[in-house]
């Protein structure tokens, strides 16, 4: 019997295949070891080094890092100028996330529910294509669009809406000399750049809501608004939360967009960039980096508490 089964001539390759087939956990182990080592050493390791740095401090006189445990660096975060950077960045990230979610949902809903064939292909193309071109090119393009001599100003003039644009720019805080030198401009570019990261997970979540559920809900007496509130939205929520993790954390950490489009007030990313570079204050840079991580941890914990991942 055994002889009959093993009769066929086998090479070394198929012998290895046989071993893996019989012991799949061996294959899993071999496949996972390199990436786990990479994540463990390079990723977690550097994260740990970062955390360690944030508990050191900078000697003000010598400009050297003092390798002694202290919480004084973290205390510096609460100084008015630093706290303002954090507050500014978190507010911006929150607004960008909420706006992205509001814009993304109808697009994702259309794509998941109605787009078929070519219109679905067009959707993916339209959402993904901005990701194919360089981030820097897009941001600089936006700078030109938003500039005082840019197309938006031009359009405002053509449509005799210059008063509206000037009115918006005259608003306190969000306004500025031109859109490209205002919080509003930074905000618009952030929303544009991160929108695909909100659309795609939302669409994936909506895609997994069977038509059956919507029919069952209407069968049980729910009008479309009630169905949306009680069935579609709760089931799409994990996708929206996943998308918001992207938009929120990407905005929290970005230092290029506010550098190119916006007023000269710093965001967390820019602060880190400046502190680790010219200022050489690695400990404070590290402490600043811990802030987004903490915020994200709290955010995820709250999302979990609210049941956003219950259907996953």
């Amino acid at each position: 019997m055994t002889a009959a089964v093993a009769e066929r001539q086998r090479g070394i390759g198929s012998a290895i295949s046989d071993v893996f087939f019989v012991r799949p956990q061996l294959l899993t182990f071999l496949l996972l070891t390199p990436p786990l080592l990479w994540i463990g050493v390079v990723y977690i390791g550097s994260l740990f080094a970062l955390l360690l740095q944030s508990f050191y401090s900078l000697d003000d006189f010598s400009g050297l890092v003092v390798h002694e445990f202290t919480l004084s660096t973290y205390k510096q975060l609460f100084e008015a100028s630093n706290a303002q950077i954090i507050l500014r960045t978190v507010t911006m990230a929150a607004l960008v996330t909420v706006t992205s979610a509001i814009i993304a949902f109808p697009i994702a809903y259309y794509a998941a529910r109605y787009a078929r064939g070519w219109s679905k292909a067009l959707f993916y193309l339209a959402v993904m294509m901005p990701l194919w071109s360089s981030y820097l090119v897009k941001v600089y393009a936006w700078k030109l669009i938003l500039a005082k001599e840019g197309i938006i100003t031009w359009f405002a003039n053509v449509l005799h809406l210059r008063w509206l644009l000037d009115g918006i720019l005259a608003l306190p805080v969000v306004g500025g000399p031109s859109l490209s030198f205002s919080y509003l401009g930074t905000f618009l570019v952030f929303v544009y750049i991160w929108l695909p990261y909100m659309i795609l997970p939302t669409q994936a979540a909506l895609e997994r809501v069977p038509v059956n559920f919507i029919e069952a809900s209407s069968d049980l007496g729910a009008d479309p608004r009630q169905t949306f509130r009680t069935v579609i939205f709760p089931l799409a929520l994990p996708g929206i939360v996943a998308g918001s993790i992207f938009t929120f954390s990407l905005t929290l950490g970005d230092y290029i967009i506010p550098q190119i489009v916006g007023n000269s007030r710093l965001m967390i990313g820019q602060a880190v960039y400046t502190l680790q570079g010219t200022a050489g204050n690695i400990p404070l840079a590290a402490a600043f980096t811990v802030v987004p991580m903490l915020i994200m941890a709290v955010y995820l914990w709250m999302a979990k508490r609210m049941g956003a991942f219950d259907v996953l």
Binding site: N212, G221, L235, D310
Partner: peptide, 18 residues
């Protein structure tokens, strides 16, 4: 459907997972 006094048992039941 939501204005009809009929109810349906779906083939795959369509129970809400959340």
């Amino acid at each position: 459907p939501y204005r009809r006094n009929v109810n349906t048992v779906f083939q795959d039941y369509a129970l809400f997972p959340h």
